[in-house]
Design a binder for these strands. Structure first.
Lengths: 197, 197
DNA sequence: TTTTGACCGATTTTTAAGAAAAGTCAAAAA
DNA sequence: TTTTTGACTTTTCTTAAAAATCGGTCAAAA
């Protein structure tokens, strides 16, 4: 089965990527792990980026489950936003090696742009659903959900960027991460308060 | 007069720095502009950083005037915050070459840390005064002003970082800047709303 | 007190060679 | 036909040495 083989490759690649980061993993190493030739690997994935993409999509689906569950179980807007932050932290800790040293990869700018844009829009979509839910339940005032969700996600991500700004691109330690999440939660609290009825 | 000479040097340095950025301006060039020897320049400023520092302090004093004026004239919290954003934009446009390519300078990390920390704390102080004023006038609820001001500034700066994230360290164009300020204003609006009585 | 030319050491830039990695392809194996 | 491979090309990264630049110093002159 061709899809089965692809899954095997994805699994092997994810292992390497998670250990050493994407930039420091070569296609040959992944092929060797599976006792394939590099040429054979390229038969299934036309280039390194498409392999990365496949992994990202798989993680996206994985996160979807948790997000849907939270959306079904938690009625309160603030509680939902905080749950999302906790989930993000969880997945970040699990996969953060994937985003390390990405800057020293020579993949075309547009491709990264496209992928990170998808991730951003996905997050905005989730926040949109949360806000809509809050409006429908009468918890929040009426507002432009699309714009406001985008602003919220930008703010949350921006806070992370700013707090991490001291040590750019270095490995982040756990204590720092906790501090960032705390800031984000404070911001989420005030933000929700600002759009409450 | 020694202070007069220092002012001349600062002016000449500011010209070069504003044109080509700090990293791409050598001490010799500044000295040549003033028809001084480099050694003579070092008589007035012991190193490059102290010259940068002097310039930053001068700009600080310049901005102080505008900030004080706004604080005296504008009573409304949101209007004040928006005024601050407009002022920041103004000064950024005037001096943004000063912050370009700073990363490729080999000045000790602590010195930068210290200086940028001063700038941050200064901004937090200004925001604190605005928030205190809002609390005193009964416009805002009571809250921890120090923490909240820090969060606000981090959020505003984070938004700028995030919006600029697409093209990191590149020269920013005017349209992009306008978009960033707009986002910041939206965020300021919701933030103030979230701490209003 | 102010100014300078000559000098030093550290950092950056440049250049070139070599290694390593991404990606290709014709042909063999299944 | 689908899958696999070894051998190959090309692009990128690494390394090392040479040259240039720059921040900073100092003794001595003005």
């Amino acid at each position: 089965m061709i899809d089965d083989k692809k899954s095997q490759i994805i699994a092997a690649a994810l292992k390497r990527f998670s250990h050493f980061g994407i930039a420091k993993t070569s296609m040959s190493e992944i092929a060797d792990d599976l006792k394939l030739s590099k040429a054979n690997l390229y038969y299934y994935f036309p280039d390194k980026f498409s392999l990365i993409e496949a992994i990202v999509y798989q993680i996206m689906e994985e996160t979807d489950v948790s997000v849907e569950q939270a959306l079904a179980e938690i009625p309160d807007t603030l509680a939902l936003l905080i749950k999302m932050l906790d989930l993000k932290k969880e997945y970040f800790e699990k996969y953060y090696m994937l985003v390390i040293n990405l800057h020293e990869m020579n993949i075309s700018e547009e491709k990264w742009q496209s992928l990170s844009n998808q991730l951003f829009q996905r997050e905005v979509q989730t926040i949109s659903r949360i806000f809509k839910k809050g409006i429908d339940s009468g918890e929040l005032v009426t507002f432009d959900v699309a714009t406001t969700s985008e602003l919220y996600v930008a703010m949350i991500r921006g806070l992370a960027l700013f707090c991490d700004h001291a040590a750019p691109h270095a490995l982040i330690d756990k204590a720092e991460l906790v501090r960032i999440i705390q800031k984000q939660k404070q911001a989420a609290y005030i933000f929700v308060n600002g759009i409450k009825k």
